[in-house]
Design a protein around this nucleic acid. Structure first.
Lengths: 144, 144
DNA sequence: TCATTATTGCAAATAATTCGCGTTTATTAT
DNA sequence: ATAATAAACGCGAATTATTTGCAATAATGA
């Protein structure tokens, strides 16, 4: 499949398609699995400052362009959210290896899997509690 | 329901039932939702040093007595794993409120819920990749 | 082209979690 | 009981990931 229109994605909510963010998008597009901010920076040849990178990732995650994923590694991982079927992740509790699991789930390992066993899983839902749901309509999110 | 046999749980794998860890267990037992290490310490009246607390939580999580939960708050939450039906969590992306969701899932909010909407969810599986699965039988885990 | 405002880099600041290390103490075996 | 052994503790310092302030730069729309 050919790459999405990054330029447009970046401009979604008044954002700007800077060379830096375009490279970031391409790097994310290339990544076979969720990556850490640090690895992303490396894969960009240090082109972007780490702080800048974090800011960009934050912005993009807020816009739903990027997904922030959390394995139990003590640092966040990021992946492109758009253009990818919704899926889950399987992480090795030892070495940190990660692989995608498609959503028609039923946690059975297929033969092609590099994993031996699933020992645990976790699911977190995110949303807005009633109190925040009210405030939400009022303040913030005025950009759309 | 009356509290589990914390003393026994702590001794599961050669651990020791120190007054500190017993208090920790009771605090976790009381907690209505997963708590952060910092809050735990407060709820213990500062009885345990934070470093000690983290070490205890680590140990207990490794023994499966405690579950380490991760919402997107930048810090971990912990809850008692034993004696509780397997369940998931629903976290407010704004204020951080958390509530349990039982496992016969089908993410529909019941009327009793304090939440307005579910905007997103994440599921992570944990296990051992083949490479680590092999090494696992050899090294470590020799305590049982 | 010009103004507006997002983005960037840099350095310093936070915040959560971990580590080293010497001391205390729960357990187990005597 | 008591002593030996390893777990657990506290303290303070060290790490690590992530954030922030601020001045400089550049993308976009008029």
């Amino acid at each position: 499949m050919d790459s999405p229109d990054f330029r447009r994605m970046l401009r979604r909510r008044g954002g700007r398609a800077t060379p830096g963010r375009l490279r970031l998008m391409r790097a994310l597009w290339r990544a076979p699995a969720p990556v850490t901010a640090a690895k992303l920076q490396k894969s960009l040849g240090g082109a972007l400052n780490l702080a800048t990178l974090y800011r960009a990732l934050d912005d993009l995650a807020a816009d739903g362009v990027v997904r922030r994923v959390d394995f139990r590694h003590g640092h966040a991982h990021y992946e492109l959210a758009a253009e990818r079927a919704h899926h889950h992740h399987l992480a090795c509790t030892r070495c940190g290896a990660v692989e995608d699991v498609d959503c028609a789930l039923r946690p059975r390992l297929k033969k092609s899997s590099a994993f031996a066993v699933i020992t645990d899983h976790a699911m977190e839902y995110f949303g807005l509690c009633k109190a925040c749901g009210v405030r939400a309509s009022a303040s913030k999110e005025t950009a759309a």
